[in-house]
């Protein structure tokens, strides 16, 4: 009897709906990673600045995201900011905003780490051959730094994909929400539905995140020397 529960996954449009939910999740993650990476590169450059004040503000910005859980940030923007500004924001938009800002903070730290790990003589040689500030970054520092930050950046992407599972808490119809709807619909006919549906979602997340974390580990090992 229990073995038949798995059929709940293949009835009607169940799989298709779960897939659509997954696309919503993946879409939020993808857009946030892109925006977060761009902002993060800017953030990382700012953090190598000599100005104490700039450094302090950037550090504070990062710590604020590190100390307060992301779910709390989702709530602050979804309930607090919308309330304060008297605007309406969809859960999806809130999710992209929060994940992008968080991504920027963490990415900034990775970029800073990569830039600071570059040997000093690279900067000095660049300056010696007369490169401008932008030329120095464009041709000398960034190409080398990318190598050092890529494993960390991929790891961050995995974390962001995993964290997108939280968007269900602010009313986004993501893969978890679709799963809940399917379970509720079939709860009487198939009591074991929740086992199969959550099991499938578990595997889906694994299928997305596992190759990413493997890739990151591989690159790290490859570029270690």
């Amino acid at each position: 009897m229990q073995n038949l529960g798995i059929n709940v996954l293949f009835e009607g449009t169940t799989l298709q709906r779960l897939f659509e939910g997954l696309m919503m999740t993946a879409g939020i993650a993808f857009i946030s990673i892109i925006i977060g990476s761009f902002l993060g590169i800017g953030m990382g450059l700012l953090r190598t600045s000599k100005s104490r004040i700039v450094q302090f503000i950037c550090r504070l910005y990062l710590e604020v995201f590190r100390i307060i859980p992301i779910l709390v940030w989702l709530f602050i923007v979804y309930f607090g900011v919308t309330n304060a500004l008297d605007i309406h924001l969809d859960g999806e938009v809130v999710a992209v905003i929060v994940f992008s800002l968080w991504g920027a903070a963490e990415m900034g730290d990775i970029v800073r780490g990569a830039l600071e790990s570059l040997p000093k003589h690279q900067v000095e040689s660049g300056k010696a051959i007369g490169l401008s500030f932008w030329g120095l970054y464009r041709y000398v520092l960034i190409p080398q730094a990318v190598r050092r930050m890529l494993p960390g950046a991929i790891n961050l992407s995995t974390r962001m994909v995993k964290t997108t599972s939280l968007v269900v808490m602010i009313g986004v119809i993501d893969v978890v929400k679709v799963g809940q709807q399917i379970i509720e619909r079939s709860i009487i006919k198939v009591p074991t539905a929740s086992f199969w549906v959550y099991g499938l979602i578990f595997i889906l997340y694994f299928i997305i995140c596992y190759p990413l974390s493997k890739l990151s580990k591989k690159l790290e090992a490859k570029w270690e020397n």
């Binding site: 229990q2 529960g5 995995t158 995993k162 964290t163 997108t164 599972s165 939280l166 269900v168 978890v176 379970i183 009591p191 074991t192 539905a193 929740s194 086992f195 199969w196 959550y198 099991g199 979602i201 578990f202 997340y205 694994f206 995140c209 596992y210 974390s213």
Partner: peptide, 22 residues
């Protein structure tokens, strides 16, 4: 690998709602 590559929310739902049904 399983634990690091899946979100806590799904792990909890699976434990709390999924396993109860078994």
């Amino acid at each position: 690998e399983l634990s690091r590559n899946t979100p806590l929310l799904i792990q909890l739902f699976f434990l709390y709602f999924g396993l109860t049904k078994l």
